[in-house]
């Protein structure tokens, strides 16, 4: 059971993130929702590669006969984090522009032409 806690946490983070996105009206808060989802997914990825009692997968200086963490999920997570930062920056810059134009951060103000 205790080994499942990271998975439960990941699922909880994703659901919390979705809740934030759907029910919060502030653009910044929705953005935070996205980052929460992202953290959940990253946590999930990292957990997949976890080995009990394992050490960091760096060959130099690793004691013989020791268990290492699986490096691929960590590489994936790292990539995903980098992409996440890029997306976050882009979205924030969009929000800055939108705020400059309308002086508002309410998502309902940006309804487009679909009215």
């Amino acid at each position: 059971m205790i080994a499942n806690i990271p998975y439960i946490a990941a699922a909880a983070l994703i659901i919390i993130g979705l809740y934030t996105i759907i029910f919060r009206k502030n653009l910044i808060k929705m953005l935070i929702g996205i980052t929460i989802i992202e953290s959940g997914v990253n946590l999930f990825l990292i957990t997949l590669g976890y080995r009990k009692g394992g050490i960091a997968p760096i060959f130099t200086g690793a004691p013989a006969e020791s268990t290492m963490m699986f490096p691929v999920p960590q590489a994936l997570t790292l990539t995903s984090i980098v992409i996440g930062v890029a997306v976050l920056a882009l979205m924030l810059s969009f929000i800055v522009h939108m705020y400059r134009h309308t002086k508002s951060l309410d998502v309902r103000k940006f309804g487009g032409d679909d009215q």
Binding site: I22, F23, K25, M30, F110, G111, D114
Partner: peptide
């Protein structure tokens, strides 16, 4: 149909869910 198309991003995600 018009009432479904709110233009609100939250709703877009809601539809996905």
């Amino acid at each position: 149909l018009k009432s479904i198309h709110t233009g609100n991003v939250s709703d877009y995600v809601l539809w996905f869910v």
